[in-house]
Amino acid sequence: MSSHPQNEHTSDDDGAVHAHVAPTKLYIGIFLALVAATVLTIGLSLVHLGTWNLAIAVVIATAKAALVVTFFMHLKDDNRFHALIFVGTLLFAGIFLAYTLNDTQHRGQVDRVNGSQMNDATGERAPGGLP
Protein backbone atom coordinates (compact mmCIF):
# COMPACT_ATOMS: atom_id res chain seq x y z
CA MET A 1 0.00 0.00 0.00
CA SER A 2 1.50 3.29 -0.94
CA SER A 3 2.22 5.91 1.63
CA HIS A 4 -0.56 8.13 2.79
CA PRO A 5 -1.61 10.80 0.18
CA GLN A 6 -0.97 14.32 1.43
CA ASN A 7 -3.94 16.24 0.08
CA GLU A 8 -6.28 17.99 2.53
CA HIS A 9 -7.32 15.62 5.25
CA THR A 10 -9.00 16.34 8.50
CA SER A 11 -8.18 13.15 10.39
CA ASP A 12 -5.06 11.70 11.93
CA ASP A 13 -2.93 9.11 10.30
CA ASP A 14 -4.90 5.84 10.65
CA GLY A 15 -7.05 6.81 7.62
CA ALA A 16 -10.34 6.22 9.49
CA VAL A 17 -13.12 8.81 9.47
CA HIS A 18 -13.50 10.67 12.82
CA ALA A 19 -16.62 12.86 12.75
CA HIS A 20 -17.49 15.47 15.36
CA VAL A 21 -20.76 14.22 16.90
CA ALA A 22 -22.85 17.10 18.26
CA PRO A 23 -25.26 16.60 21.20
CA THR A 24 -28.98 16.10 20.38
CA LYS A 25 -29.87 19.12 22.48
CA LEU A 26 -27.95 21.36 20.04
CA TYR A 27 -30.02 20.16 17.08
CA ILE A 28 -33.30 20.62 18.93
CA GLY A 29 -32.19 24.09 20.02
CA ILE A 30 -31.45 25.02 16.41
CA PHE A 31 -34.85 23.67 15.35
CA LEU A 32 -36.66 25.80 17.95
CA ALA A 33 -34.72 28.87 16.80
CA LEU A 34 -35.81 28.17 13.22
CA VAL A 35 -39.46 27.81 14.20
CA ALA A 36 -39.26 31.05 16.19
CA ALA A 37 -37.78 32.83 13.17
CA THR A 38 -40.60 31.52 10.97
CA VAL A 39 -43.24 32.79 13.36
CA LEU A 40 -41.41 36.13 13.51
CA THR A 41 -41.39 36.36 9.69
CA ILE A 42 -45.11 35.70 9.43
CA GLY A 43 -45.80 38.18 12.21
CA LEU A 44 -43.73 40.94 10.65
CA SER A 45 -45.35 40.40 7.28
CA LEU A 46 -48.70 41.48 8.76
CA VAL A 47 -47.18 44.84 9.80
CA HIS A 48 -47.04 47.22 6.80
CA LEU A 49 -43.46 48.63 6.61
CA GLY A 50 -43.30 49.43 2.89
CA THR A 51 -40.06 48.48 1.19
CA TRP A 52 -38.60 47.36 4.51
CA ASN A 53 -40.83 44.28 4.50
CA LEU A 54 -38.88 42.63 1.69
CA ALA A 55 -35.54 43.49 3.31
CA ILE A 56 -36.56 42.09 6.71
CA ALA A 57 -38.05 38.93 5.18
CA VAL A 58 -34.83 38.27 3.28
CA VAL A 59 -32.66 38.97 6.34
CA ILE A 60 -34.64 36.56 8.52
CA ALA A 61 -34.64 33.91 5.78
CA THR A 62 -30.87 34.33 5.42
CA ALA A 63 -30.45 33.94 9.18
CA LYS A 64 -32.52 30.74 9.12
CA ALA A 65 -30.53 29.49 6.14
CA ALA A 66 -27.28 30.25 7.95
CA LEU A 67 -28.43 28.20 10.95
CA VAL A 68 -29.37 25.23 8.77
CA VAL A 69 -26.12 25.38 6.81
CA THR A 70 -23.69 25.78 9.72
CA PHE A 71 -25.25 23.27 12.15
CA PHE A 72 -27.53 20.86 10.32
CA MET A 73 -25.17 20.63 7.32
CA HIS A 74 -22.07 20.54 9.58
CA LEU A 75 -20.37 23.33 7.63
CA LYS A 76 -18.95 24.62 10.94
CA ASP A 77 -16.69 21.65 11.68
CA ASP A 78 -16.22 20.60 8.07
CA ASN A 79 -13.48 21.13 5.50
CA ARG A 80 -13.10 24.89 4.90
CA PHE A 81 -13.29 24.32 1.14
CA HIS A 82 -16.96 23.31 1.37
CA ALA A 83 -17.79 26.65 2.97
CA LEU A 84 -15.90 28.35 0.12
CA ILE A 85 -17.97 26.42 -2.43
CA PHE A 86 -21.23 27.42 -0.74
CA VAL A 87 -20.35 31.10 -0.43
CA GLY A 88 -18.85 31.20 -3.91
CA THR A 89 -22.04 29.79 -5.37
CA LEU A 90 -24.11 32.47 -3.63
CA LEU A 91 -21.69 35.07 -5.02
CA PHE A 92 -22.22 33.86 -8.60
CA ALA A 93 -26.01 33.77 -8.13
CA GLY A 94 -25.69 37.33 -6.78
CA ILE A 95 -23.75 38.41 -9.89
CA PHE A 96 -26.47 36.95 -12.11
CA LEU A 97 -29.15 38.80 -10.11
CA ALA A 98 -27.30 42.11 -9.87
CA TYR A 99 -26.41 42.46 -13.56
CA THR A 100 -29.85 41.35 -14.76
CA LEU A 101 -31.51 43.89 -12.45
CA ASN A 102 -29.00 46.49 -13.65
CA ASP A 103 -30.66 46.09 -17.02
CA THR A 104 -34.31 45.63 -16.11
CA GLN A 105 -34.39 48.47 -13.56
CA HIS A 106 -32.74 51.11 -15.78
CA ARG A 107 -34.48 50.64 -19.09
CA GLY A 108 -35.64 53.86 -20.68
CA GLN A 109 -33.62 56.15 -18.41
CA VAL A 110 -31.60 57.57 -21.29
CA ASP A 111 -34.54 57.74 -23.70
CA ARG A 112 -38.00 57.24 -22.16
CA VAL A 113 -39.30 55.40 -25.20
CA ASN A 114 -36.83 52.50 -24.96
CA GLY A 115 -38.46 49.60 -23.17
CA SER A 116 -41.77 51.39 -22.66
CA GLN A 117 -44.97 49.50 -23.50
CA MET A 118 -47.19 52.53 -24.12
CA ASN A 119 -46.61 55.23 -26.75
CA ASP A 120 -47.61 58.34 -24.79
CA ALA A 121 -48.05 60.47 -27.90
CA THR A 122 -50.67 58.25 -29.54
CA GLY A 123 -51.71 56.06 -26.60
CA GLU A 124 -50.97 53.01 -28.73
CA ARG A 125 -49.84 49.93 -26.78
CA ALA A 126 -46.70 48.34 -28.22
CA PRO A 127 -47.91 45.67 -30.63
CA GLY A 128 -46.86 42.07 -30.09
CA GLY A 129 -47.35 42.40 -26.33
CA LEU A 130 -50.33 41.98 -24.04
CA PRO A 131 -53.60 43.20 -25.63
Partner: peptide, 8 residues
Protein backbone atom coordinates in the same frame (compact mmCIF):
# COMPACT_ATOMS: atom_id res chain seq x y z
CA UNK B 1 -37.03 45.66 -32.51
CA UNK B 2 -38.63 43.77 -29.62
CA UNK B 3 -42.31 42.74 -29.69
CA UNK B 4 -44.21 44.03 -26.69
CA UNK B 5 -42.09 47.14 -26.19
CA UNK B 6 -40.83 50.18 -28.10
CA UNK B 7 -37.22 50.78 -29.05
CA UNK B 8 -35.66 53.79 -30.73
Amino acid sequence: VVPGMYST
